[in-house]
Design a protein around this nucleic acid. Structure first.
Lengths: 333, 333
DNA sequence: CTGAAAGCGCTTACAG
DNA sequence: CTGAAAGCGCTTACAG
């Protein structure tokens, strides 16, 4: 079933049939209707490969993920895939656990000439980034920023989120704050810490202690418990770089140190993943503005697909608020 | 950068250059080496679209997911994507939350003529299945079986898993068993229940009560607590259709009914997702043979990509064992 | 507004 | 073993 078949069927030329499928092509409205209707009847759709061979556009978005143990990402991947489909873009998924593999994966992805790459992974290697540039593929970093400047970014205002947590804890009487840090190179980790520490100091507290957990994972949080125990005086308010880290940290602190939350210490996370609301965790946390971040990404994808190039910019969206649950003491006592 | 460029650069014909990239093509070994080496140097890769226009093969695997709140799937999606890339296949992801959307999504996917579709979603509508058949795209159901016969399936032996749980509970002194059921139409749910119930009856117990939770989700499990409370006599051993359901059920039973696990009742899940091992859950569960299931799927993908058609079959892999944690009483008392 | 023709980047019979 | 040529299913100047 090709244009030719449809053209013959309709007694038109292939050119005319082809034009019917292009919104901006010059064609009589009635002719277009005729073609589209008949196409729907017999189930014809233009072959996207043949099309992209000429147009140099593929309607493919390459989605690069790696941080898969963080439940924040599956949700984003699903939502993004659905939302992009609504503007007729298809997601080609590239997943990588080790960072060495990601370069290969991106290279293979580029072979399919995606109109756009969206990076959900912690960091994309400089080599892979350069290849995207050479291929002329724009890159959007979602929830992470690149270290260099020539990429788009859509992220939460993480520093504002960190400050929000500091205010929340201080307003409720906490005086000895600490931060459980994740990947040292991740912009999210850095900005959340900075916003948190800065606000604490502004409000006259000692600079919060920092416990290096190293990763955004349950295990990293769990194993940060000894680092917490070593702190003296013991902090009473702990901000963890994200939810999954916070959940691991709470389990570690309870199980390994026998401490009680929020009686012995308050814990606050960042993301508001679904499981933060489960009674077994009851995590007080900063809610990411996921809807706004998705909308911004899709809008940007649409623009990049339509026009040529815009100068790269970062869209930093305010957090969607702090969700109060049971992991942080709420009274000033 | 096209074959033409490379051919000119090497002083060869495009035919020869093209042949260098096809393992089975007739070409002098040294010529091939020359071409491949130069291609690597200048970064040439054949355009997969132009290629597939002729070969009718795309190296694209369409991955259809929907049950995204189940943490079992993100892991599978990542692993499958990586493993398929190792045999040079690329994953095009199709995600859908509502079931109406999935038909559209599959239709769009077929436009890219994937060599294969892998279904991780609960069920694929009959309409979408027919379209795959018409397009000649083989379908593999992963961890689910189709209701009709003409599709491949890779799954755990769920009935054996259910029997395993019955034996485990009975051997440890439980006498009043119950099953918390998920999607009534899902083969996993049906088979696990059947295996569990059959073995319980075989061993002389009353047929286990069945609580219909309706879905494979935390919320469904949580809200099954009242249904459990309504049972008389109260069951002492509960098998939940999967882990995420079990975790929700445990939270519901503790929070809504004030019961203690495993003192008041034992709970066993199915999957062994990462969070089942967390101290906050400590879920005793049946481990899915994920490695073997992935290997089988990739192997099947390779075969389907290479040869033409094999008769559809189902590969039912024994469970990888029962993992003992804290949610089920281990002593006979 | 429509059609005939060239061409996108490849592969693959067909000759040699 | 290699090359010239046809053709995969489209799109898009160019004429009319």
């Amino acid at each position: 079933m090709t244009v030719k078949d449809l053209a013959r069927d309709l007694g038109m030329s292939v050119s005319t049939v082809s034009r019917a499928f292009h919104p901006h092509a010059v064609i009589a409205p009635q002719t277009r209707d005729l073609v589209l209707q008949r196409a729907a009847e017999i189930g014809y759709r233009p072959n996207p490969f043949a099309r992209s061979l000429i147009t140099k556009r593929t309607s493919i978005v390459g989605l690069v993920v790696s941080d898969i143990t963080n439940p924040f990402y599956p949700e984003v991947v699903t939502r993004l895939t659905e939302d992009l489909r609504a503007i007729d873009m298809n997601v080609m998924l590239v997943a990588a656990s080790a960072s060495g593999e990601i370069d290969d994966a991106v290279r293979l992805l580029l072979t399919y000439q995606p109109d756009l790459a969206v990076i959900l992974a912690s960091t994309l290697s400089t080599a892979a980034r350069r290849e995207c540039d050479e291929a002329g593929t724009p890159v959007i970093f979602f929830n992470r920023l690149s270290n260099d400047d020539d990429a788009f970014g859509v992220t939460c205002d993480n520093a504002a989120g960190g400050a929000l947590v500091a205010d929340y804890l201080i307003d409720r009487g906490h005086r000895r704050l600490a931060y459980v840090a994740a990947r040292p190179d991740a912009s999210t980790n850095i900005e959340r810490r900075e916003g948190f520490v800065r606000r604490a100091v502004e409000r006259g507290l000692a600079s919060p202690a920092v416990i290096e957990a190293g990763l955004f994972s349950y295990e990293a949080g769990y194993h940060a418990a000894p680092g917490f125990a070593a702190l003296s005086p013991r902090p009473d308010g702990v901000f963890c770089a994200n939810d999954i880290l916070a959940i691991g940290f709470m389990d570690g602190v309870r199980r390994e140190l026998g401490l009680s939350i929020p009686d012995d210490l308050s814990v606050v996370g960042f993301d508001d993943v679904a499981m933060a609301a489960w009674p077994s965790h009851g995590l007080t946390t900063v809610r990411q503005p996921v809807e706004a971040m998705l909308a911004s990404t899709v809008e940007l994808a649409r623009k990049l697909a339509a026009h040529a190039s815009t100068a790269p910019f970062v869209n930093r969206i305010p957090p969607a608020g702090l969700v109060e649950r049971q992991s942080a003491r709420t009274r000033h006592d």
